[in-house]
Design a protein around this nucleic acid. Structure first.
Lengths: 199, 199
DNA sequence: CTGTCAATTGACACCGTGTCAAGTGGCTGC
DNA sequence: GCAGCCACTTGACACGGTGTCAATTGACAG
């Protein structure tokens, strides 16, 4: 279902990636990808059954390329809960711009395409686990705000770190990436970390 | 361009609204709306030039119906900055579920349709003004966190209150509406209001 | 020399939006 | 009572994008 000439296959993935990055995920058609990969549109379907399948494969390709797992796993090395929270925000927040194009394309298909919705959902679930791990670490250190249960805190962190929010702050509000990261770290602390006022 | 039989026109708007609400904005075609309004698809185009135009008209119809302006303006009556922040979050946060269906449909068109993008952008700009007013009031009371400029604070509040975030928390995380409102109020305070620890 | 197989060419179906031309039926004014 | 207007209908079609199919080409392998 996906193992013809491996050379062509990765040429397709590269083409898809480039186009999606360049156009921020908007208006990239099968024809365009084929053209850029130097094959015909129909040949695309010899490698990927549907547009959604190709897009999903592209995200995995990107993950490998950028070492997504390594980055996120690294954030688990941090000692204290707070360090871990910071490290996770840096890792994920720094990864968003890299996946933004493809993420947007997938996001746009979600409403109409079941497979796309599921694939994106899975990725978001993975990301959520990172949030949860940070919250658990915070809680272990007795530093989680008493206002929220670990689950609620996870929901909040997960929502704060959504791709849409990154889009809104950096693209719509014009924040530089560095400010995005710094502000999100500060926001997360204010919201999730217990006040240590009396000490 | 939009003034034939006013009866039919509002029947169309009602139909569009019902369908968009019922289906959360997903998969509502011109045919469906026409059918529900009791006319043909082609007749729709006698009243609204394009799907985007119809959707936009539907949002205005909804605003009138629900008294959107009144609600949001009411939040400006509050005395202190903090009251105003709370009032605004309650007003807007309470309005989101009502517009969610149509908002999602419009949101989905944004990538492909210039007019839809612009219309949604304008609405979000209006909403942003509400955020800004609350921030300014907070600042006037000397209660705005020194960590953020009024503009940055507005960006943050505006992003926190996005429809997408509401969707994620209520629909994906399963939060009841009341919890959404309460949590967002508490979040906004923690983030935007200056610490009054020493007194 | 034959078979295999990736890829090509060209055609077509499906869907949803938007357009057009000709027809229908009701109400209005003279 | 009929002429004309006008909202709406019917039916057809174009367009763009995805997905499918059949027949063909050309390379390489045994």
């Amino acid at each position: 279902m996906s193992s013809y000439n491996p050379d062509t296959r990765s040429r397709i993935l590269k083409a898809a990636l480039k186009l999606l990055e360049a156009s921020q995920g908007k208006g990239v058609r099968m024809t365009d990808i084929a053209k850029r990969a130097g094959i015909t549109r129909q040949a695309l379907y010899l490698h990927f059954g549907t547009r959604a399948e190709l897009l999903i494969a592209t995200t995995h390709y990107l993950d490998d390329l950028k070492g997504a797992d390594e980055r996120l796993v690294a954030s688990r090395m941090a000692q204290t809960g707070i360090e871990r929270l910071d490290a996770f925000i840096e890792a994920w927040g720094g990864y968003i711009p890299e996946i933004h194009g493809i993420a947007k394309a997938l996001l746009a298909m979600m409403d109409t395409d079941e497979a796309a919705a599921q694939a994106w959902g899975e990725r978001m679930q993975d990301m959520r686990e990172g949030c949860e791990a940070a919250i658990v670490a915070l809680n272990r250190d007795d530093m989680l705000s008493p206002d929220y249960s670990p689950e609620q805190a996870t929901d909040i962190l997960w929502t704060m770190l959504s791709v849409r929010n990154w889009e809104q702050l950096t693209i719509e509000c014009g924040w530089p990436q560095a400010r995005y990261i710094e502000t999100l770290k500060s926001l997360a602390r204010r919201v999730l970390v217990a006040d240590r006022t009396p000490d």
